[in-house]
């Protein structure tokens, strides 16, 4: 669990702890979390409900302050990273603005904190939407889109300003199974040609395996990292991977790890 290479960029989480509640009844939600996500590495976080996955993601996103420990992004503090617009966030719900077109929603990151736009490899929002399969929907409003399309627009919004880190909190959890699979393959394909450091929270074991370089299994009460499972499947990956023995072996391994964590054994 201890990792070296602190300054290769990417996300470095060092001894992070977080508690909630009044001083006489505090519950420790995160305890001594150590994790590195290298530049261009895809890391999934999986674990029982309430183990602190979202809390960890919020600490990395600068939405919550850790009580202990330190998070750096590209060697800078989280505050500096947000100030430089280095973090793209995809929340659990698409959270698109209903009064804006899809295009205007996706360009939202360019309209705020403009000081950091200079010298940045901004993507052409229309092109990006095209590659997300939303080319026909640029001038539509979110309410005219299916749930899957809305979520794709939310992912495009996180990619458009070329951040170095992407944080996603169960972005596909609200979708039905078929839609989910389609969206995750879309994300996989897009990410493989646009490598970012990704922290991806999920409840789905196959999803974690097919997308990730490493899977972080978290235990609850207090939230901590139980195991980090490397996924050494070749890239680029595609749907055919689901049927391979390597995939099944990994799936069994992750499930065993989860069972151990959940059963408290």
């Amino acid at each position: 669990m201890t990792e070296t290479n602190v300054h290769d960029g990417g996300v470095s989480i060092r001894g992070v702890g977080k508690s909630f509640g009044p001083t006489d009844a505090r519950t420790t939600v995160l305890q001594d979390v150590d994790l590195n996500i290298r530049m261009g590495e895809f890391v999934s976080v999986i674990g029982p409900s309430g183990c602190g996955k979202s809390t960890l993601l919020k600490v990395v996103a600068g939405l919550l302050d850790a009580d202990e420990g330190k998070v750096t992004i590209d060697g800078e503090s989280v505050t500096a990273a947000t100030r430089n617009k280095m973090i793209g966030l995809v929340p659990q719900a698409p959270a698109l603005l209903p009064w804006r077109t899809v295009l205007d929603n996706v360009t939202l990151p360019m309209r705020v904190n403009k000081g950091t736009n200079a010298g940045r490899a901004m993507r052409d929002a229309r092109e990006l939407l095209e590659s997300f399969g939303l080319g026909h929907a640029v001038d539509k409003y979110p309410s005219q889109l299916s749930g899957g399309m809305q979520q794709r627009a939310a992912i495009a919004r996180a990619f458009v300003f070329d951040p170095s880190v992407l944080l996603m909190d169960e972005p596909f959890s609200a979708l039905d199974e078929m839609n989910r699979d389609q969206q995750r393959m879309g994300l996989l394909e897009f990410w493989q040609s646009n490598r970012k450091a990704v922290m991806f929270v999920t409840h789905s074991v196959p999803e974690a395996i097919i997308l990730s370089d490493r899977i972080v299994v978290m235990a609850a009460h207090p939230g901590r990292i139980a195991e980090i499972i490397p996924v050494d499947l070749p890239r680029p990956r595609g749907e055919e991977l689901y049927a391979t023995d390597e995939f099944r072996d990994l799936e069994a391994r992750v499930r065993t790890s989860l069972r151990r964590v959940m059963g408290g054994l």
């Binding site: 919020k58 996103a61 600068g62 939405l63 947000t82 100030r83 617009k85 973090i87 793209g88 966030l89 929340p91 659990q92 719900a93 959270a95 698109l96 603005l97 009064w99 939202l108 990151p109 309209r111 705020v112 904190n113 919004r157 300003f161 944080l167």
Partner: peptide
């Protein structure tokens, strides 16, 4: 306001005015 949209704006380090203009006022 939609707390998730607010989270997105906060990770972008949007200013108070930008959050007002983009989210609070129309919302």
């Amino acid at each position: 306001v939609d707390p998730k949209a607010l989270d997105v704006l906060r990770t972008l380090h949007a200013s108070r005015w930008e959050i007002f203009r983009e989210l609070r006022f129309p919302g």
